[in-house]
Amino acid sequence: MNPHPTDKRELRAAMRAERKRLAGLDATAAFRAVDHVGDLPPATVVAVYRAIGTELDAAPLAAALAAAGRELCLPVVIEGDGPMIFRRWAPGEPLEPDLVGVPAPLPLAESVEPDLIVTPLLAFDARGWRLGQGGGHYDRTFAAVPGATRVGLAYAGQEVAGLEVEAHDVRLHGVLTEMGYRPFE
C-alpha cells in the first residue's frame, strides 16, 4: 500500500484500516512469520508484546522463542510520558493491565533489559522507519535502551514507500513478516 495522507493522524487511520484488512485476509501470517525465527538477530533476552486489536499476534513468536531457550519479557508502561520498562515473562504466566491498559507481567516479576525488542507497528518503510500508534512509548523506550536490537513484527503489506521522520523517531534494525526477516542497512 502506498497511501499519501497529508499528516500522521490520517496516515495512522489509513494504516489501521489496511492492517485490519490484512488481518482479515490472512489468519496464518503470525505462524508463517515464526518459520523465520532463526533469521532474527541473536539475543538472550527478547521483548515481545501482547497484540492489541489487529496487531500481528506475537504469541506464536513468543512460544517459538521460549522453545528455543530465549528468555522473554514484556513491556510495561509505568509513566505516561516515560520509557517503558520490561518485566520477565513466560507464556502462560499471569498478566494484569498496565497504566495504558495493555496486559503486562505482575509487579513482582523481575525487571530486565532486553537485547532484542520486537515491536508492533502500523507501517514501516525500506529505510527502517516505523509508524506507531502515536503515543511515543516505543520511541522513548528505544532511546532509553540504545543497545537493544529493534525489530518490527508486521504484515508484509504494512510496508509503505516512505515515512516522514521526526527528531524523536528511532529506526528499526529489521522487520519480521510472514514473508521473512529483513534487516535494514
Rank of each mutant, 00 (worst) to 15 (best):
A29I: 13
D35G: 10
A68N: 09
L176N: 02
G180S: 09
D39F: 09
A63S: 09
D81F: 12
P146V: 12
W89M: 12
L106M: 13
E18L: 15
M179E: 11
R130V: 06
V37I: 15
T44C: 06
D57V: 01
G162Q: 14
E55R: 03
P94Y: 06
L108Y: 13
G69I: 08
D7E: 01
E185S: 14
G152H: 04
H173P: 01
L108V: 15
R16V: 14
P5L: 11
G82D: 07
R9Y: 00
M179C: 11
A33D: 07
H4V: 15
T119W: 07
T177P: 02
V45I: 15
V151G: 03
D35Q: 14
F31G: 13
L74D: 01
I52F: 10
V165T: 13
Q133W: 10
D57P: 02
E164T: 11
G92V: 13
L99M: 12
N2P: 00
L11D: 06
G134Q: 05
D98E: 01
P183H: 11
A109R: 15
F124V: 04
R130G: 04
A33C: 07
I78N: 03
N2H: 12
I85C: 07
L99N: 02
R150P: 06
L176G: 02
A43Y: 11
T149Q: 11
G24S: 04
E93I: 08
G132A: 08
K8F: 11
R70Q: 10
L22Y: 12
L25T: 11
A33F: 08
